[in-house]
Computed example of a mutant assay.
Amino acid sequence: MDIVPLDVPGARQTVELENPQGIFYKIRVGGEVIKRTKGGWSVPLRNGSTAKIKSQGFIPGFQALYLEDKKIYDMGAGVQLPERIAIFAPLILLIWVPFGLVLGLILFFMGIPGVKNQQMPRGLRIALPLINTVAAAVILTLITGRIGIWG
C-alpha cells in the first residue's frame, strides 16, 4: 500500500494520502480513513477547529488536493503531456463497435496507474496505452468483422 504524508499545519494527528498512484484514493487521519463530507475531508486541529481538504481536477487519479487555497499534493505531478495524451488513446475504440466504448473506458482506467508509475521507463509509459488500444482494435475487428463507425 502506497501512503504519502500530507502537510496539514496544526493537525491533531498525522494526515496521510493512501494510494496516490492509483485511481481511487483515501485520506487518513491518525491511521483511520475519514469520509468525504460536503465536498471535502474535515481534519481536526489541535486548537479544536477543523481544516478542510478539498480535491480539484476532472480526470480520475490526476486530482490535486488543497488545504484551504494552498495545494498540498498533486497526484499527477510526475506525468508529462505526452503521457497525458497517450492515456486517452483507448477512447478511440468507441468508433469501432458500440461496445468498444466499454472496452475503451476499461483500458483508460487500467492505464492510469501504469502511466503514473515513475519506476517504468517513460517510453513504455507512453507506449503502453497505445499498444493496448491497437491490440483491442484488432481484437474487436476480428470479433465483429467490421472496421470503424459500426460499419
Rank of each mutant, 00 (worst) to 15 (best):
M1S: 15
D2P: 00
D2V: 07
V4R: 10
V4Y: 00
P5V: 06
P5F: 10
G10M: 02
R12Y: 01
R12P: 01
T14P: 15
L17S: 05
P20H: 02
G22L: 03
I23V: 15
F24G: 04
F24N: 08
V29H: 10
E32R: 13
R36M: 09
T37L: 12
S42C: 02
R46H: 01
N47L: 10
S49H: 03
A51Y: 12
Q56N: 15
G61E: 02
F62A: 07
F62P: 08
A64R: 13
A64Q: 13
L65K: 05
L65H: 09
Y66M: 08
D69I: 14
D69E: 15
D69M: 11
K70W: 05
K71E: 14
D74M: 02
M75R: 14
A77T: 06
Q80F: 03
L81I: 14
L81M: 12
R84G: 09
I85W: 07
I85C: 04
I85G: 01
A86T: 06
A86P: 03
F88I: 08
W96D: 11
P98W: 07
P98C: 02
F99S: 09
F99H: 12
G100E: 05
G100I: 00
L101K: 07
G104E: 11
L105W: 10
I106K: 00
F108T: 13
M110R: 04
P113C: 08
K116M: 05
N117L: 07
Q119F: 05
M120L: 14
M120C: 05
R122E: 11
L124Q: 14
R125Y: 03
R125N: 09
R125G: 06
I126T: 05
I126G: 02
I126F: 08
P129L: 06
I131Q: 03
I131W: 00
N132W: 11
T133A: 08
T133Q: 05
T133K: 06
V134T: 09
A137I: 00
V138W: 04
V138Y: 02
I139G: 10
L140N: 00
L142P: 09
G145L: 02
G145R: 08
R146F: 11
G148I: 00
I149S: 13
I149A: 15
W150A: 13
W150I: 03
